[in-house]
């Protein structure tokens, strides 16, 4: 008894020492790594200050010629269409997989449990790959088509939405569900009359947030050569036409604000 006590105390002391040492080593490594960064001219482009100033001053005014506005509107429309199609598909897939993954369709027998686990696994794979990587895959498969963008957005977003939906559907109070069960409702009816209405406000709020992200994602698909706002921004940047870049950026912000406004209105009408 006494012996184990002593070794324990000694062990604890050694553990503390080790921990302090480890902290010191890590802190040292951090400081050292800072010296590894080249703070000199290498990282900041020489004359970058001037270019940045030029970029900022180009905001006054942005490019507002009718011809360019027309182009910006067309590009925004393209991006919006990709985002809407992508998120719509993601909603449908995410809801279906999320419901299965939540296991709320039945008492978890062995096979049901296996199916729920499989759905969770599938969702994890879908969301662990970035939309741009999916885009590269789909562009390779289908060429530079809208289908490629829509799928590239839909799949990872369905993975994220499905995961969140399954949590929200499980995270509802038991009282109302028991009430429905005592009226003879099967798990599927409990889902429709209980879980979904109880979780709906949160599900919609989160989906709108993801819709905003989908707009960003659709814009950045220019990296794999897909047209839209990002594509035009890239072209203007290459030509150093900063006032055009500003116009396009303002359109992008406009799209996101539009979704935000819509989201607020929908949530207000749901009376949350």
């Amino acid at each position: 008894m006494i012996w184990t006590g002593v070794t324990k105390a000694r062990g604890a002391a050694r553990f503390l020492e080790t921990r302090r040492l480890l902290t010191l080593v890590l802190a040292g490594a951090l400081v050292w790594s800072l010296t590894g960064v080249d703070w000199g001219g290498g990282i900041v482009h020489t004359g970058g200050g001037n270019a940045f100033k030029e970029f900022l001053t180009a905001l006054f005014p942005p490019e507002l010629s009718p011809g360019f506005l027309k182009l910006a509107i067309a590009a925004s429309w393209q991006t919006l269409v990709h985002a809407v199609a992508g998120i719509t598909l993601a909603l449908a897939i995410g809801l279906a997989l999320g419901v299965v993954a939540s296991g709320s369709l039945g008492h978890l027998g062995r096979s049901r449990l296996a199916i729920a686990v499989a759905a969770r696994f599938l969702l994890a794979i879908m969301r662990s790959i970035h939309e741009l990587v999916w885009a590269v895959l789909f562009v390779t498969a289908f060429g530079l088509s809208s289908l490629a963008v829509v799928l590239a957005i839909a799949i990872p977003y369905a993975g994220i939405l499905g995961r969140i939906y399954s949590e929200l559907l499980n995270d509802v109070p038991d009282g109302p569900l028991d009430g429905l069960r005592s009226s003879g409702a099967s798990p599927a009816k409990v889902l429709v009359y209980g879980r979904i209405p109880l979780a709906l406000t949160d599900m919609i709020g989160y989906s709108f947030y993801r819709f905003e992200c989908a707009i960003r994602a659709a814009a950045i698909m220019s990296f794999v050569g897909i047209r839209g706002l990002g594509y035009e921004i890239q072209l203007s940047l290459n030509d150093l036409l900063f006032s055009e870049v500003w116009t396009l950026l303002l359109f992008l912000v406009g799209l996101v604000l539009l979704v935000d406004y819509w989201s607020t209105r929908v949530r207000r009408s749901l009376g949350s």
């Binding site: 109070p173 109302p176 429905l180 009226s183 209405p197 406000t201």
Partner: peptide, 19 residues
Amino acid sequence: LDLVPQLPVIQNVLAGRLG
């Protein structure tokens, strides 16, 4: 506690028919 607060009254009453 056993009603679904987000649903209209009629749907909570009709839940009695779900069986």
